[in-house]
Simulated assay, not measured.
Amino acid sequence: MKISLERKNDHLLFEGKSETGNTVTIDGAPANGGDDAGMSPMELLLTAVAACASFDISLILKKQRQEVKSLKVDASGTRPEEGQVKPFKTIHLHFKLTGTPDESKVARAVELAVEKYCSVASSLDPQIKVTHNFSIEN
């Protein structure tokens, strides 16, 4: 797997491009010299954890023939307020599903996805506490 990253202005605006040509815009906050014209690297990391786990949940539930009409995730992370380096201390993922899936199957799928199968979460520092929960609306 490879990506390329190119600075697009004289501030902090970058474009990331995958080998397949997909792109993502990355920028910093004005307080850091950016223009808020894209997601920050830390927002991308949080998004990557949420997306990775969501892919796995979707695949597990599809394999089990569970009816899921939509899946959304609210992801939040806490970071220290002081210091030069501010890594995530905690990440929480709340999965919101609609449809009529079996609740026990959703619970197991969420647990497996976040704690076992998500490659992004597995790539994080083990000191980062990743928690999760879910809700189902019919």
Rank of each mutant, 00 (worst) to 15 (best):
K2W: 03
S4I: 10
L5G: 06
E6H: 06
R7A: 13
K8M: 15
N9Y: 09
N9S: 11
F14H: 12
E19P: 03
G21Q: 00
G21P: 00
V24D: 05
T25E: 10
D27C: 08
G28V: 00
A29G: 07
P30Y: 00
P30Q: 00
N32L: 15
N32M: 13
G33N: 01
D35M: 14
A37V: 01
M39C: 01
M39G: 10
M42Q: 03
L45V: 08
L46S: 07
T47N: 06
V49N: 09
V49P: 01
V49L: 12
A50K: 10
A50E: 00
D56C: 07
S58K: 10
S58E: 04
I60S: 08
K62G: 06
R65A: 11
Q66G: 03
E67Q: 14
E67R: 14
E67C: 02
K69N: 13
L71C: 04
K72M: 07
V73Q: 05
V73K: 06
S76G: 09
R79M: 12
V85Q: 12
V85C: 02
V85W: 09
K86Y: 00
K86R: 15
P87L: 11
P87A: 08
F88E: 08
T90W: 02
I91W: 00
H92F: 09
H92G: 04
F95G: 03
K96Y: 09
K96E: 14
T98L: 02
T98N: 05
P101T: 11
E103V: 07
E103K: 13
K105H: 11
K105L: 12
A109N: 12
V110Y: 15
K116D: 10
Y117R: 08
S119R: 06
V120A: 11
V120T: 12
V120F: 10
A121E: 04
A121N: 11
A121S: 15
D125T: 05
P126I: 03
Q127R: 12
Q127M: 07
N133S: 15
S135T: 15
S135I: 03
S135Y: 03
S135N: 04
I136C: 04
I136T: 02
E137M: 06
N138L: 00
